[in-house]
Design a protein around this nucleic acid. Structure first.
Length: 442
RNA sequence: GUGGCCGUAGCUCAGUUGGCAGAGCGCCGGGAUGUGGCCCCGGAGGUCGCGGGUUCGAAACCCGUCGGUCACCCCA
């Protein structure tokens, strides 16, 4: 195939986010930022790539993400690096490096990279919003983190989603449970699907969330981790459930919920959209990772967090027809059929006055320019032709709503446009979203 | 990594048994002597993804390849 047909194309599994969809992304980020900053979380930017060991240690060598999905590369200095496949490990790495005072609550918005075969709701570069909270082992922190995600989804208007909850135990009780599970599964080895028959020794937990009917049948009778938690883990889990109940957050217990990263301990949770037809309907998930800081060389420090998939979340919003975002319209569109110098100067004048203004180029016909003005969504057209130039005036033509056009003196244009447009100058509350962080990082 | 389906104009797609490359939308111009939306007329725009094969003749049939999409695996 000639280069031309593939070179101008986003790499497989990646996509462009152009206006007006990009407006929606910014609004989503702003809504998230406002919510989590209002709960004491501070923005953390970390590099988009890290020493590959940051991911290997925490996520686990045996996981699919580390084993076959990482974008690994060597830089010119021979360092082994990887594009981040998820958001937690880098933030925890930053914590270990800088040791901010505890408790430390951070949020992030970042692209994440995994080399997988793309499909609906799954991309090689996707984007995650998330929080991490380090320090407290308090189950109420688990409740806070879960409720932040849940409240965020509700604030967007989502209603058709489910929260599933589980406890993975900790170093005190999980090893014994794993032996129990392995023993049970071994008895039924021949009934498992081929892949999990193979995997039984490496990670028997994985069989629990297998979707194949044969595995389902076996694991239905398998010992449940929830029944084999040590006392501290059991108490922790009970308090998390009680806390969610007290806050009125519905959830279902799912002892099959085994998340794919090794660092999880105790509470794990996942949100899935019930409105999404696609196979990939998980819109967010997370859990506690009380050993991760140590794995990355820090002092024993509990932690918990979640990640939300931006693309999937927006798909879920579409499926429920919620979170529409209308672009802010222009105040004025300058139509110049008198040579163009007036358009050049007048557009500049309007913009300096803080008004949102655009114009046509290339000396197009008046009909064509007005067509563009209409499509731009501008509230008013500012028309300059030979007559206006001769008279030192402009014609203001409302493009939306009622009211006829009128003629105003050139030096009264700003006031007239501001009046006709119902003034919505740049700098109002809407553009303060920038304070939430650079949108370009998402 | 494995499998199903699909690649024709900027977009959505027709294209009969193999016989001149099409429509709608969008874009540009005109109807309107200075006026957007609705309507009418005209115009620009395509190596039918790419390569090979079959044939008098291929967008169509065959093989390969690249790309897209959906599903499995796994995950946001």
């Amino acid at each position: 195939m000639p280069d031309d047909s593939t070179v101008a194309r986003a790499p497989s599994g990646t996509h462009d986010v152009l206006w007006p969809e990009s407006t929606r992304w910014e609004s989503l980020l702003a809504a998230f930022a406002s919510r989590v900053e209002g709960a004491g979380y501070g923005l953390a930017h970390t590099p988009i790539f890290e020493d590959v060991r940051v991911f290997r240690r925490g996520i686990g060598e045996a996981s699919d993400v580390v084993g076959k999905e990482m974008y690994e590369f060597e830089d010119r200095g021979g360092r082994a690096l990887a594009l981040r496949p998820e958001g937690t490990a880098p933030v925890v790495r930053a914590f270990v490096q800088h040791r901010p005072p505890l408790p430390w609550k951070a949020w992030y918005a970042t692209p994440a990279f995994r080399y997988e075969r793309p499909q609906a709701g799954r991309y090689r570069q996707h984007h995650q919003l998330g929080v991490e909270a380090l320090g407290p082992a308090d189950p109420d922190l688990d409740v806070e983190v879960v409720s932040l995600a849940e409240g965020f989804f509700r604030s967007l208007g989502l209603a058709e989603f489910e929260l599933r909850l589980n406890s993975m135990g900790d170093q005190a009780c999980r090893p014994a449970y794993l032996e129990l599970l392995r023993a049970y599964l071994s008895e039924h080895r021949d009934e498992l699907c081929p892949e999990h028959r193979q995997r039984l020794d490496a990670n028997p937990l994985r069989a629990l969330d297998c979707k194949r009917p044969e595995c389902r049948a076996v694991t239905a009778g398998a010992p449940s981790l929830a029944d084999h938690l040590c006392d501290p883990c059991r108490r922790h889990f009970e308090r998390v459930r009680a806390g969610l109940g007290a806050l009125g957050i519905p959830f279902v217990l799912d002892h099959r919920l085994v998340r794919g990263f090794d660092y999880y301990t105790r509470t794990t949770f996942e949100f899935s959209s019930e409105a999404l037809e696609a196979a990939q309907n998980g819109i967010g998930g997370g859990g506690r990772y009380d050993g991760l800081v140590e794995m990355l060389g820090g002092p024993p420090t509990p932690g918990i967090g979640f990640g939300i998939g931006v693309e999937r979340l927006l798909l879920a919003c579409d499926a429920e027809s919620v979170f529409p975002v209308a672009p802010v319209p222009l105040d004025a569109y300058v139509v110049d059929v008198a040579g163009g110098t007036a358009a050049r100067d007048l557009t500049d004048t309007l913009r300096r006055a803080g008004l949102r203004a655009d114009r046509a180029f290339d000396d197009r016909s008046m009909k064509s320019q007005l067509k563009s003005a209409d499509r731009s969504g501008a509230r008013v057209a500012v028309i300059i032709g030979p007559d206006e130039v001769a008279g030192g005036v402009v014609t203001l033509r409302p493009l939306r709503g009622s009211g006829g056009q009128r003629t105003v003196p050139l030096d009264g244009v700003v006031a007239a446009v501001r009046d006709a447009a119902g003034h919505d100058p740049i700098g109002d509350d809407r553009s303060r979203h920038d304070a939430a962080g650079p949108a370009s990082t998402v």
